[in-house]
Design a protein around this nucleic acid. Sequence first.
DNA 1: CCAAAAGTGTTTCACTTACACCCATGA
DNA 2: TCATGGGTGTAAGTGAAACACTTTTGG
Lengths: 229, 229
Amino acid sequence: MSHTYEYPRPAVSVDCVVFGLDEDQLKILLIQRGAEPFLGMWALPGGFVEPDENLNEAARRELQEETGLRGVWLEQLYTFGEVDRDPRTRVITVAWFALVKMSRYRARAASDAANVDWFPVSRLPRLAFDHRKVVRLGLQRLQAKVRYQPVGFELLPEKFTLRQLQQMYEVILDRQLDKRNFRKKILGMDILIELDEQESGVPHRAARLYRFDKSRYKSLLKAGFNFEI
Amino acid sequence: MSHTYEYPRPAVSVDCVVFGLDEDQLKILLIQRGAEPFLGMWALPGGFVEPDENLNEAARRELQEETGLRGVWLEQLYTFGEVDRDPRTRVITVAWFALVKMSRYRARAASDAANVDWFPVSRLPRLAFDHRKVVRLGLQRLQAKVRYQPVGFELLPEKFTLRQLQQMYEVILDRQLDKRNFRKKILGMDILIELDEQESGVPHRAARLYRFDKSRYKSLLKAGFNFEI
DNA sequence: CCAAAAGTGTTTCACTTACACCCATGA
DNA sequence: TCATGGGTGTAAGTGAAACACTTTTGG
C-alpha cells in the first residue's frame, strides 16, 4: 500500500437516482448539463466529493445544490469505476438512490431551475456518461427492495389511502395486484395506523387515510417479523 | 463539475471480504499488515486501484497478489468513504465480497505466506482501519444473499453431499434446519444433478454426491422460478 | 454388533390465490 | 340516477413445518 502516492488518483463523484411517484407514473429526477462534456444532455444530479465530507454528505449536498431537495430517503446503490466512463479523466462515481415524496417537492424543483425535471422511467431521454446503466440498476434495486422492506412509503404522502399504496406497488412492480388480497395482507401486518380522516376532493366516495407506523414496524422487526409484498 | 480539478483527490482502494467454509465453520481470509499504519495488525486483503484498471480488476489483482487466490466468485459489497477512516490521508475504499471453495485453496494460501490466514468469523482478531465494520456488513450480505440466490455453492466443492449443503446453510444462517424438509425443498427445485458417486473415506454409510446445475438454474430463472431457502 | 449418518412420508396448519357484489359519495 | 371507486368474505389449493424410524456401511 505504501507505494501508492506516486500514482495519479482518480476523481471521485456521487450521482443520485432520485425516484418519485406522480399519480400512476414512476419518475426520475434529471438535470440538464451546463458544461462539457455532454453539454446540454440530461444526467443524474451529482458532482465531486469534497475532501472533508463523507460520501452520503456529498450526495445530500449535491442534491440540495442542484435540485433543491433536502431530507430525502437515501441509500447507497453501487460504485461505478470503469476506466473510460468519463472522457476527461478517471472518475469513479458512488451512485445513490433516493426516494422522495413528490407531492411535497414537485413545485419546488420545477420552479427552482429550468434545467431540472422529472421524467417517467419508461420515457427517459438520452443520458450522459453511463447514467443509463446507473438508472437501470437503481430501478432493479427499487423493484427488489420494495418487496421486502417498507421503503415504498417514502414515495407516498404521510397520509395515504390503501388504493394509493396498492397503486405504488403496481407501478413499481409493473403488475396488477388483487385488491382484497392486498388489503388483507397489508392490514394484517399491523404496521398501518388507521386515521379518522378521509381523502378529499374526489368525485366519488372518499377513502380512508392511513399512516405508516414506523416504530411499530421496528419493534415487529425485532420480534422476527418479515415484511413482504 | 468543472471546478473540481482544483481539489485534492482522495485515494481509492479495494478491500475484499473473502469467505470460506471449513467443515462446520465459516471463515474469513485476512492478511497481516507489513507496513504502517496498523503494522502487524490483521486486515482485509486489498490495496489501491491503478489508473488503468477497473474496480473489479483491482480487487482480483490484489487478491491474487496478496493471497494467491484466483478465479473466485466476487461481488461488490459497499463503498466506505468516511473522512477519517485512514489516518494517513483520505482513502475511499470499494469493498468486495468473495466466496471461495476452501478445499481447493487452503493449502495454497497457507504455504504462500506466513502472513495470510483464515479466521473463524466468530473469533476474529482486532482488525485495522474500519475493517471490522466491513466484515460485519459482508456477513449480513452473505446471510441475506444465500437465502434467495444459489451462491452458497461457491463455498462447497464441485461435488457435495446433501448433508454438506444443509450444513453450509446452517452455518451461515446460524440455525438448524430440518433434514427431511430441507431435502424435499432443495431436490424439488430441480437444480441439482444427482451423480453416480458417493463420498468416500467415511466410517459409516456413504452419502450420494450432487452437483449444482447452473445452466438449469438459469433457464428456470427465465421461467420465473424463485430460489429461496 | 455397534456407532454413525443416510435416507424416507405423512399430517397439520398457515398462507396464498381466485373471485363478485353492495355501498357511499359527488356530479 | 349515474358513474366511480370504497369496502368486504369465503373456499380451494399450495407450501411450510413438525415429526421418527429403518437402512447402510465401516470398524
